[in-house]
Simulated assay, not measured.
Amino acid sequence: MALTLSALALLAACDTVAPTLKPQARPPGLDRSAPQPDGTTRSTQSQALSRYYARVQSELLSQGLMRGDGGGADTPFDAEDLARNFEIIAFFDEHARGALTPSDGRPGKLHRWESPVRMKADFAPGVSQDISKRDNAIISRYAARLGRVTGHPVGVTRSTSANFHILVGGVDDEDYILRRVREIAPDISASTLGIFRNLPRSIHCFVLAFPGADNGDVYKLAIAYVRAEHPDFLRRACYHEELAQGLGLANDSARARPSIFNDDDEFALLTRLDELLLKILYDRRLRSGMGLEEARPVIRRIAAELLPETS
């Protein structure tokens, strides 16, 4: 998600960071008309988005998508699949640096965290207390799961020591979100900050990860953004994908199944395959900054160890 930077850590990082942006395909037949205001205190635009995303979620679920079962007998994969998917998801970027445009398709280096990951949810003033209380619990449990899976210190904090910020807000909260992003990353570039403005509704959520000044291959800061207009399950799906991608799995693959790192929306929550991808990412035999050719034999050994019955 982020490449080489100069000594001005965040300034360079924010100029070069490639966000994990997750455009979602419109389900077939979805009504394109914007609904009318429902009389709440939220703006017409926010109300329209809430209704739109409710329809998106309903349509996806009616098609048997957004599965939460983690995969099963109908989604087999072997060690070769695991290794191949890891290479695509960990060494390639979905989008160009700090933009919504596609990447150049060339493999990069392995990026991950070396220091403990301290997550903190930040709910904008327009988000209800019911949502913030419920989602804080979801994020706390999920962070603990990510820590167990990776073997890397991952957890939540309420202090100012947070380095992985999860911003939750709606279109009515744009000023608040922009202010918080500037506070978290004071040297963020105008182009990267612009991603938070007028976000296309096809993008449900995204994460930006920034390297530190001393090592451009090691993440030191991340900011995830999740729309408050999402219904509960769609919002939970965003947490699952963006928090995992913010650990270093920046790409998607149409061949990854069962996986949330796939644009087909078949799975909404972290799967068994995804857990194995995270295990490989934080295996000590790999190093931040490794290129694909150097890492490939190591990846294949680890995959064979994780799935010996299929190798």
Rank of each mutant, 00 (worst) to 15 (best):
L110H: 02
I139F: 00
K109R: 13
K109I: 11
R179A: 14
P153N: 03
V127G: 01
S115Y: 01
A90L: 07
S189N: 03
G194W: 05
L199V: 15
F123G: 06
V149D: 02
I139V: 13
F123V: 10
A137R: 12
R106L: 13
G108E: 01
S161L: 12
I138F: 15
T192N: 09
D130L: 13
I138H: 12
A143C: 08
F123P: 00
G147C: 02
R97C: 10
H152R: 10
W113H: 02
H152E: 07
I184Y: 02
H152N: 10
A185E: 09
G108F: 02
V156R: 12
V168A: 02
M119V: 13
F91C: 04
K133L: 14
N136F: 02
D130E: 15
L199T: 15
K109Q: 12
R141A: 12
P125C: 08
P102M: 09
A96Q: 13
S128D: 09
T157P: 00
W113Y: 08
D172I: 06
P116W: 01
K133W: 10
P153V: 07
N198A: 14
F92K: 06
S191R: 15
G155Q: 09
L193F: 06
R97Q: 14
A90E: 05
P102G: 11
E183Q: 15
P125R: 09
P116D: 05
S191E: 15
D173S: 08
P102T: 03
R141T: 13
E183L: 14
A143G: 03
V149W: 03
A162D: 03
R197M: 09
G108M: 03
S132D: 04
F164E: 00
P107H: 10
G155S: 12
S140F: 03
G155T: 10
V127E: 11
H165S: 07
G108L: 00
T157F: 04
G147A: 04
E183T: 14
R148K: 10
G170V: 06
F92C: 02
